[in-house]
Design a protein around this nucleic acid. Structure first.
Length: 669
RNA sequence: GCUGCUGUAGCUCAGAGGUAGAGCACUCCCUUGGUAAGGGAGAGGUCGAGAGUUCAAUUCUCUCCAGCAGCACCA
């Protein structure tokens, strides 16, 4: 019989008959290893213990202690076990797919009745029964036709469709968990008993479209988490609870930053505290943009459909626009006003406008005023542009995904050969802002040409190369999103992560070959002829709303001092201290510190608790001693220790702390 | 937009076919207290909106609105 040579991680090698399985290899080493083994790595491929090895290879056997393969297999086997449990409880439920995801897995089912939270409990219980049966996991290779016939016979249309979508004619792998059968490429554990029965939890049910296509059936997806042991599961659940405490919607309420209400879904009512963050941030960006060579502009909110038709938004973006009909025959006569509904049906007098969903067309209008020379390029135009988009109701999320928002928008009009340099300048600009705001880690995604696009391949080649080379020059290797670029040009996206790990696109930098041409932008080149500029759409924060949401979650509400809406509370311990409290507040305010007095008839314990919960970074407590010595007792948020300082000292310190990062830097110079 | 769930006092939540309750917050009184909730009293709700069933609906049914989770979307 032919022999093959297998090399172990320690470098030793042994000969085995060709077609030996990792299980047999494990058994040749020791009985206990054969029992503990869960899978192998054969030449770095994750290998089922039952799969034969046909050629010389490196081999490493995995046990439950090997985290990466263990988690992969535990979660994957649990997905099968869950599907089996569901079909045992409710025969006739159709199975689809159930991949492993971060922290666990999900499985999509087709069932008429919705799964209830009680159902999840029943499924979990059944899963534990299955695990405790310790039934073997077995596998076989089937011919395609046999597999299709099997799933037709068992009325599993989704499986049939899956098989039909698998390219080629190669045979397919089947797995059995006990008697329960599923199509699966593997690998799997030896038996169901290798799954820790107390380290998983079914989390929730949600709808999900079959194959991610909103035109197809809506299935029921059960999400679950699983780990190597109970402690890790507990730790994960605890982390989720902690993350929920950072939720910007909850903190926004607790810190009295903003609210939203039914009458204006997806739009923010900023309260004084929240607006303080907003304006502080806006002032900061405004200073940065001025320093970065941008000219700030402002453009109209309500714009005639003619412009949107010209820009292409009317055709491509209409269903996301708020459209406003204005009856121009209206007079100021009160009686007429009551007939608005009737008269607005009269097309003769109705003019159709849209709230701007983007600022770019308006910026081109400004560019188009007066003749532009190549000497004017690159021309960097910025606007804190308030936009309205009719986002699908299901997409709304706190202040992170809204229908009314303000972008720190900017458009750079330049020549094609300036794209790379402008991109480099932008990345540098954005990095400096993110670092000032405490975000040192962010993902960068690069989206290249989509199938349907404007512009020549040559132009795309140049633009893509320019974006990539500028990004790499900044030491960033972007993630590639193939084919995800806009039809008008490639783009870079800068992504930040919220408290529970959801990604949010904030910064963006997009090349646009189309819009300047559509809207008739041009400049006179060195050659004396007219040329169309390239337009770069860019934002750093993205929208103030989303960015502030991220900022709140990132800091769990404990914003950096310069951004904190209430920076200092000066709290009296005895009412005799009230005059000194007012004096301190006045001294701080004179230095630009946001300070407030708290001279309520409450104990200091009460005040400390309340302002700690309210995330005020500094509390100055004033009692009899402080009044006599003209000192303050300083308590910083999160610190138990207090410190006594003189009034002059603390005012000087806090006045410095209150400087935004850019001004602090220039003050140091 | 789709699937499921939810909507009761400012907030967090309980409740039942006969028009409602707790804790915190709020107001007033007592308390002048030294670093995460001192004590007492009081006020506060068209039970998301509309329609239907019923002698009677906040409770049951339907429609709509909004929110939550996920999917789709994010030009």
């Amino acid at each position: 019989m032919a022999q093959i040579s297998l090399t172990f991680p320690d470098g030793a090698s042994r000969d085995y008959p060709k077609g030996v399985t990792p299980m047999e290899v494990a058994a040749s080493i020791s009985n206990s290893l054969a029992k503990k083994a869960i899978s192998a790595h054969v030449d770095d491929a994750h290998w089922d213990l039952q799969w034969p090895i046909e050629v010389d290879a490196k081999i490493a056997l995995n046990t439950l202690k090997d985290e990466v393969p263990a988690l992969e297999l535990i979660r994957h086997d649990l997905a099968h076990i869950m599907a089996r449990a569901v079909q045992e409880i409710w025969p006739g439920v159709k199975v689809t797919i159930g991949p492993v995801i971060a922290n666990g897995w999900y499985y999509d089912f087709d069932r008429t009745e919705p799964f209830t939270p009680e159902d999840l409990g029943a499924i979990e219980k059944k899963m534990k029964e299955i695990i405790n049966k310790r039934e073997p996991v077995t596998t076989e290779i089937w011919e395609r036709d046999r597999a299709i016939a099997h799933y037709q016979a068992t009325n599993e249309p989704y499986k049939v469709e899956l098989i039909e979508a698998i390219p080629g004619d190669e045979p397919l792998r089947m797995y059995w968990h006990g008697h329960w059968q599923d199509l699966c490429r593997g690998p799997h554990l030896q038996n169901t008993g290798q799954v820790p029965a107390d380290a998983f939890k079914l989390m929730n049910v949600a709808g999900a479209y079959w194959r991610g296509d909103s035109n197809r059936a809506m299935l029921q997806r059960i999400y679950a988490v699983a780990f190597q042991n109970k402690e890790q599961l507990k730790k994960h659940l605890f982390m989720l609870e902690e993350a929920a405490k950072r939720d910007h919607r909850k903190l926004g309420r607790e810190m009295n930053l903003f609210h939203m209400q039914e009458e204006a879904p997806g739009q923010v009512f900023w309260h004084p505290n929240g607006w303080s963050i907003y304006t502080e941030l806006q002032d900061y960006i405004r200073r940065k943009q001025r320093a970065g060579g941008y000219q700030e502009v402002n453009t109209p909110q309500v714009v005639d459909r003619k412009l949107w038709e010209q820009s292409g938004h009317w055709e491509k973006f209409q269903e996301s626009m708020f459209i406003v009909e204005v009856d121009e025959s209206r007079t100021e006569d009160g009686d007429n006003a009551q007939n608005f509904d009737e008269r607005s049906n009269d097309p003769k007098h109705t003019r159709i406008n849209a709230l701007k969903p983007m600022n770019c067309p308006c910026h081109v209008q400004i560019f188009n005023q007066g003749l532009k020379s190549y000497r004017d390029l690159p021309l960097r135009m910025a606007e804190f542009g308030s936009c309205a988009r009719y986002e699908p109701s299901g997409a709304l999320h706190g202040i992170m995904r809204v229908r009314g928002f303000t972008q720190d928008d900017g458009h750079i009009f330049c020549r094609e050969d300036q794209i790379e340099e402008e991109t480099a300048i932008y990345i540098d600009f954005l990095s400096s802002i993110y670092s000032d705001l405490g975000f040192h880690e962010f993902k960068v995604k690069f989206s290249d040409r989509p199938e349907k696009r404007a512009g020549t391949d040559e132009t795309w080649d140049k633009a893509e190369a320019a974006l990539l080379s500028a990004t790499r020059a900044a030491g960033i290797e972007p993630e590639l999103n193939p084919g995800e670029g806009a039809f008008y040009g490639p783009k870079l996206e800068f992504v930040l992560t919220d408290a529970i790990g959801r990604d949010w696109q904030c910064g963006t930098h997009q090349v646009d070959f189309v819009l300047p041409d559509r809207l008739g932008a041009d400049y006179i080149g060195e050659d004396g002829n007219k040329h169309t500029p390239v337009m770069l759409h860019r934002a750093c924060l993205g929208s103030f709303e989303r960015f502030i949401g991220i900022l709140i979650e990132e800091h769990a509400g404990k914003l950096p001092f310069w951004l904190a809406p209430r920076q200092v509370i000066v709290a009296s311990i005895v009412s005799d201290a009230d005059p000194f409290v007012h004096e301190i507040v006045a001294a701080l305010k004179a230095k630009g510190v946001r300070a407030e007095a708290d001279i309520r008839n409450e104990k200091i314990n009460y005040k400390v608790r309340e302002h700690s919960v309210g995330k005020v970074p500094v509390l100055l407590a004033i009692g009899q001693r402080e009044v006599e010595d003209r000192t303050v007792s300083v308590r910083r948020l999160g610190e138990k220790q207090t410190k006594t300082e003189t009034l002059d000292q603390i005012v000087a310190t806090l006045a410095t702390d209150a400087h935004p990062p850019d001004l602090r830097r220039s003050a140091d110079l």
